[in-house]
Design a protein around this nucleic acid. Structure first.
Lengths: 112, 112
DNA sequence: GGCACCTGCTAGATTTCTTTTGCATGTGCT
DNA sequence: AGCACATGCAAAAGAAATCTAGCAGGTGCC
């Protein structure tokens, strides 16, 4: 997945989503191996409820994806894995994305 | 400036700083031309006080830098300009940075 | 049945971020 | 002196993100 072509809103969402220690750790953990909620929660040392909240945001931003699988012993488990993304951030890229953010820039040329 | 070699904390700060529409616009505006506070505020259509707050955060994250200059007519003006940064974000990079974030990862191998 | 796992949700308390408002200081020009 | 424009800071209000605690449902095994 190439996050380069993102609308301002999209970029903003990705940044906001990544700007959190827990979510950063989640991405890091999933980068190593896919995992299911409960196990991942234990592994990270946080509550399942909290992890779910963060996973929802990560999924909403398109950074991770989930798949439901039934284990041999019949338990339904939700596996998460990272979306292979690549974000190249530079002032120029931001300048581009900013155009598709919101107005406010219309007057730019006006202020002298 | 290469933001690739950032400590987890540093990466987190950069992300949190960029995750805001106003600050994104500021970076975008400064990417085009350096500018001084009052003029930039007018250009973006926001109050000077608000802009100052955002500029402080951007500066704290090392994304912009300021220089005080005295104009011909004696007015002291504070010019800001973007730091030419380059951030390449991928799950792997995050996995790396996450190690220098905080503990919590010590048990990773333990949970089975 | 009772226990160990798996999943899901949300109301409410907290904390943190964002924005406004108001006051202060300084220079130059009329 | 009065006005225009530059800077700076901070308290208080408002808005948003975060985390906890509690409840819900399901399967398999002893």
């Amino acid at each position: 997945m190439d996050v380069d072509d993102l609308t301002g809103q999209g970029l903003l969402q990705v940044l906001a989503t990544l700007a959190n220690p827990h979510r950063l750790r989640v991405v890091a953990a999933l980068a190593g191996e896919r995992n299911y909620v409960s196990r991942l929660a234990r592994s990270l040392g946080i509550s399942r409820a909290l992890l779910q909240v963060h996973l929802r945001k990560l999924e909403a931003a398109g950074l991770v994806s989930a798949t439901i699988e039934v284990s041999e012993d019949g338990k339904a488990m939700k596996f998460y894995e990272v979306t292979p993304f690549a974000l190249h951030l530079t002032p120029e890229v931001i300048a581009d994305a900013a155009r598709t953010l919101g107005p406010e820039s219309e007057l730019e040329a006006g202020a002298r």
